[in-house]
Structures are given as structure tokens and as C-alpha cells.
């Protein structure tokens, strides 16, 4: 667990963050419901701060344990990507579960906004 980032620990969504040299790993567990949107937005802002501070080359989001992401939370991720687009310093990589069909479509949506900065595994 990172000292710099306050984890999300709601009944719906839990984050597990790992800050290593040049890389930040984020595991999302549960479901990103509309009621979690503000928590997620604050968390992503903190992640951006740590990524800049530690000069991370990439932030890796592991979504394989994420049941669902609502449009409200998708919007929080989009805003975070757009903010990063203004001063691109790291790549956002999303690790998805191929069996979760919604992930494929929603991540394609994120990639259409994030451009080169977004990688999808």
C-alpha cells in the first residue's frame, strides 16, 4: 500500500495501490458504482500527484477484479485522462478481463479520448 495515496475502501469499491520505481500499480476490486464517483475522482487525482512526484513512466490499472464501472465513474476516469493529456508524463495501461465484455467496449471508449497515452492489455 502506498503511503502517499489514500486507498478507496467503500463497500462497493476497494483499491490496492503499489508504487514502485517508475511504475504505479492500481488494482480495482468490486464495482465502481455512481455513488463511488467522488471517491474515484479524488483517488485518481492523488495517483496523478504521486506519478508526477515519482516520475512514473506508467500507471497500470488492473481491472480483472472489477465487476462493473458506471458511466459516472467512467466520466471520472475520462476527466483524469483529459487532464493528463494536457501534460502527458506517463502512460495509462489498463489490464482487462476478456470475458468481461463491457470492459472491452468501455476501454475502447477511454482509448478514443486518451489516444497514445492509453494502452489496453
Amino acid at each position: 500500500m502506498s503511503r502517499e495515496v489514500r486507498e478507496i475502501a467503500t463497500p462497493e469499491l476497494v483499491t490496492e495501490t503499489e508504487v514502485r520505481s517508475g511504475r504505479i500499480g492500481v488494482r480495482l476490486v468490486g464495482s465502481a458504482e455512481s455513488v463511488t464517483r467522488e471517491d474515484l475522482a479524488a483517488y485518481l487525482k492523488a495517483i496523478d500527484g504521486v506519478a508526477v512526484e515519482t516520475e512514473a513512466a506508467e500507471v497500470v490499472f488492473d481491472l480483472r477484479a472489477l465487476e462493473f464501472m458506471s458511466a459516472a465513474c467512467l466520466r471520472a476516469v475520462l476527466a483524469w485522462l483529459l487532464e493528463g493529456e494536457r501534460s502527458p508524463r506517463y502512460v495509462a495501461r489498463f489490464v482487462s478481463d476478456a470475458k468481461n465484455h463491457w470492459q472491452r467496449r468501455s476501454l475502447a471508449s477511454l482509448a478514443s479520448i486518451g489516444g497514445e497515452r492509453v494502452r489496453i492489455d
Partner: peptide, 18 residues
């Protein structure tokens, strides 16, 4: 729509668009 939502436009209709 995604672009509008990312820019923080309230009521962008992202849910319906999805």
C-alpha cells in the same frame, strides 16, 4: 459525448450515450 463528459459538462448524457 465522451469528450464533453471528460471536460466536465454536467448532464452530458453519458449514461444514455453508453
Amino acid at each position: 459525448l465522451l469528450r464533453r463528459a471528460a471536460e466536465g459538462v454536467e448532464g452530458a448524457g453519458l449514461g444514455l450515450g453508453r
